[in-house]
Amino acid sequence: MTTLTKPTDDLPPAARGSLGSVSAARKLKDRLVQILVYIAFALAVVPLVSVLWTVLTNGLGRLDATFLQFSMNGVGGRDEGGGAYHAILGTLEQVAITSVIAVPIAVLTAVYLVEYGGNGRLARAVSFFVDVMTGIPSIVAGLFVLALWLLTFGFTYSGFAGSLALTILMIPTVVRATEEMLKLVPNDLREASYALGVPRWRTVCFVVLPTALTGIITGVMLAVARVMGETAPLLLTIFFTKAINANPFEGPQAALPTFIWEQAGDPNQASIDRAWTGALVLILLIMLFNLGARLVARFFRPVSR
């Protein structure tokens, strides 16, 4: 024991009579880094807990039937009451339209990259730009739809315009997720199908895609959760309304993120409260999709994996 704890930092360690122990300085450094690494983790947890906690405590106050059933039509900033029904409806419609447009494009792009593209120039270009697309600031997606759809084509603000902007943000995420899943499908399965004389496209549609389906659904749900919280592009494309507008193709529509933005911009406490509750509902929706994605991934795992 005595020899084991004896500091032996002088070197070389040659011919030292005992096992010795690591020098105090090295041990200290090791400890120090360990503490720093633990602190780093704590630093990440503190804001997470703080965000979730404040949203929960501040948001619960107005999480009532009125909030979920009524719009802000005719409700002033100082007034109590009012709700986000119009915003929840808008968000769900916009996200649904976004998925309908983005998922087929993204899945087909991924199919192209994995099944057909090989290492060709087009495939590499597409793959590269999908990566670049992941990094497009969301506000730029909004500006693009503004420049193309509203200013050039002359359409008005609408939920659909918002969906177009969200589509640009959703495509790369779904492409990447689908790509990963398709790569996991064992090649034997494809070869077995070819060996039976099944044409390639049928192999992809009826063998490869179904095998990867749960993974793709998981990826899509995560992507939906992601775009659901986007605010910036919506400000430029759906604009604002306090009233219920169930038609996503005509006129300004509300969405939960823009609802929060609007309410938070008003200094009255009643509005701030509504903003918190809006944030709570938004987070709950996002968590729901996240959880759903995980459940799908867990319970509908294909047998082959």
Partner: peptide, 30 residues
């Protein structure tokens, strides 16, 4: 069927490139 499917898949890939190009073009134009 193969031809149609490949075109659809390749078309989607090209669409991604087109979107990127369109973003640049329309932002500049406007």
């Amino acid at each position: 069927g193969d031809k149609i499917f490949v075109s659809a898949a390749r078309g989607s890939g090209i669409l991604v490139l087109a979107i990127m190009a369109a973003i640049a073009v329309f932002l500049i134009w406007r």
